[in-house]
Computed example of a mutant assay.
Amino acid sequence: MALPASPAAAQFDVYDDPSVLSLPTTLRATVRVPVTATSEGPADTLAALYPHLAACWRPPADLGAAAITARFSLRRDGSLQGTPRITFTRVPPRQRDALVAETLASLARCTPARLTAGLGGAVAGRPIALRFVYPGPNQGERP
């Protein structure tokens, strides 16, 4: 014998819950750096936005393979909202400070990002966790 559905469940529709139809709470991406120049126009998709945000990243001196994740938010106009936070690093301890400084400086150099109005509205205020992966100067190392 099946239990009767509650009146609230019977009235629920996927269109009544905006979280079902929206972007995830945190937008996540991994970008292998350094990135070659991105397109000239404004980013209109997340796939176009992430390389644009990583295009200014440069490896600090004597950096081997490394990975770092920055968490930040953008405003509708593509500028940084608040100060980015570093949430993960995989690098020798003696190189951590240089890697953190370069990552924060690169985000400052690459913003405000040029966004279309639609993408700007979609990402405004949402946390972005962008992971930069640097394979090392030999390109064969792994972080």
Rank of each mutant, 00 (worst) to 15 (best):
R131I: 01
L21A: 15
L119S: 06
T38S: 14
C56L: 10
A113H: 05
R114G: 08
A29P: 10
P84H: 03
P7A: 15
M1T: 15
L80P: 12
P7V: 08
S106G: 02
P24A: 03
T116L: 10
T30W: 08
S19M: 12
T69S: 02
T45R: 04
R114H: 04
A48S: 07
R32F: 14
L104H: 02
G78N: 01
F72P: 08
A113S: 10
R28M: 12
R131F: 06
D13N: 14
F88R: 05
S6A: 13
A66M: 10
L3R: 14
P42G: 00
D17F: 11
Q11T: 13
F132N: 00
E141H: 13
A105M: 03
C56Y: 09
R32I: 13
L104P: 10
V35F: 02
L104S: 03
A67F: 04
P137W: 03
T45I: 07
L99K: 12
V100A: 02
N138D: 15
P4H: 07
L49K: 09
A66G: 05
Q11C: 09
V33E: 04
I128Y: 00
A10W: 10
Y50T: 09
A48L: 10
P42S: 01
P60G: 08
G125M: 07
R28S: 13
G78W: 00
R126I: 07
E141I: 01
L3E: 14
S39C: 06
C56V: 09
A43L: 09
A122C: 05
S22Q: 14
P143A: 14
A55T: 15
R85I: 12
D77F: 09
R142Y: 12
R96M: 05
